[in-house]
Computed example of a mutant assay.
Amino acid sequence: MRLDKFLSQQLEISRAIAARELRAKRVTVDGEIVRDGAVKLTADSQVAYDGNLLQMQTGPRYFMLNKPQGYVCSTDDPLHPTVLYFLEEPVAYKLHAAGRLDIDTTGLVLMTDDGQWSHRITSPRHHCEKTYLVTLAEPIADDVAAQFAAGIQLHNEKNLTQPASLAILSPQQVRITLSEGRYHQVKRMFAAVGNHVTALHRERIGDVVLDETLEPGEYRPLTAAEIAGF
């Protein structure tokens, strides 16, 4: 990759501004000041801007994030802060959520810049399971687990939901596992049986379980095994 293109991506500036920074002798490659933007970089090149090392991106990136309340999963939102705020990564704006959560829903979000990988998670054809911890406003009725297993008719939906499994942890807290991802599905399923979700936390996507050591707003790279699970 050309040096000026690399600087443009890493610093999120235009190539014209990158050329200006090069002329100002603010960039070094392998410890030497370089002013020519056409210089070709290798995977081993050490590029620094004002003495701060800029990381080379060598391939797709995969992270898990413990999303707190109050943040949206879009990469750009004029009204609300996005989960990109937490990702201290080069060109973080190129990352996207593989399966979004509502602004008031917490828990596991997978972030990547690999479009094919995220498609395997979000495409309805792949029936990727997701597990949520649900807190309810009212005690759950005895027949809800059977209703969810048979499929629920959601408001303004033509087809029943796919079978979902429900584990009752306490009268007002349950764990639900879905294999589809309709709009606000968990909240709408409980609304359809006369209850209301007061808190929703995603614990699992496929075989990837939220790392219990991650505090809200913290993230880590996925392991090779976690990446290969999709």
Score class of each variant (00 low, 15 high):
Ala150Lys: 05
Ala167Thr: 15
Leu178Val: 13
Ile140Asn: 08
Val144Pro: 00
Ser165Cys: 15
Asp142Ala: 15
Leu160Lys: 06
Ala146Cys: 03
Gly151Met: 06
Gln173Gly: 04
Phe148Lys: 05
Leu166Asn: 13
Pro163Tyr: 14
Gly151Val: 02
Gln173Phe: 02
Ile152Glu: 01
Ala164Thr: 06
Asn159Ser: 12
Ala167Asn: 15
Glu157Asn: 12
Gln172Cys: 08
Leu166Lys: 11
Ile168Cys: 09
Asp143His: 08
Val174Ser: 10
Glu157Val: 09
Val174Thr: 15
Asn159Gln: 12
Arg175Gly: 03
His155Pro: 00
Val144Arg: 00
Leu169Ala: 13
Val144Thr: 01
Ile152Asp: 01
Ala146Pro: 07
Ile152Asn: 02
Ser170Asp: 09
Pro163Cys: 11
Ile176Gly: 02
Lys158Cys: 09
Gln172Ser: 14
Thr161Pro: 06
Gly151Lys: 03
Asn156Ser: 13
Ile140Gly: 03
Leu169Tyr: 15
Pro171Ala: 08
Asp142Arg: 14
Ala150Asn: 05
Ile168His: 08
Glu157Cys: 10
Gly151Thr: 05
Asn156Ile: 07
Gln147His: 14
Gln172Asp: 06
Pro139Val: 07
Asn156Phe: 03
His155Gly: 05
Leu178Ser: 02
Asn159Ala: 13
Ser170Val: 01
Glu157Ile: 12
Ile140Pro: 00
Leu160Gln: 02
Ala164Phe: 04
Ala167Asp: 15
Val144Phe: 00
Lys158Arg: 14
Val174Gly: 11
Ser170Phe: 07
Asn159Trp: 01
Pro139Lys: 08
Ala145Gly: 00
Gln147Asn: 08
Ala149Tyr: 04
Gln153Phe: 05
Phe148Ile: 06
Gly151Asn: 03
Ala141Leu: 09
Ala141Met: 10
Glu157His: 10
Pro139Phe: 07
Leu166Trp: 11
Thr177Gln: 13
Pro171Trp: 09
Ser165Val: 14
Gly151Phe: 06
Ile168Pro: 07
Gly151Glu: 02
Val174Pro: 13
Ser165Pro: 04
Leu166Ala: 09
Ala164Ile: 04
Ala150Arg: 03
Ile176Cys: 03
Val174Asp: 13
Leu166Pro: 10
Ala145Leu: 00
Ser165Arg: 14
Arg175Asn: 12
Ile140Glu: 02
Ala145Cys: 00
Glu157Arg: 07
Gln147Trp: 06
Gln162Tyr: 04
Thr177Gly: 09
Asn159His: 11
Leu178Gly: 06
Pro163Ser: 07
Gln162Phe: 05
Asp142Ser: 14
Ala150Pro: 01
Ala145Asn: 00
Ser165Gly: 10
Leu178Trp: 00
His155Glu: 12
Lys158Ile: 15
Val144Glu: 00
Gly151Pro: 02
Ile152Pro: 00
Ile176Pro: 01
His155Tyr: 01
Ala149Val: 01
Val144Ala: 01
His155Lys: 06
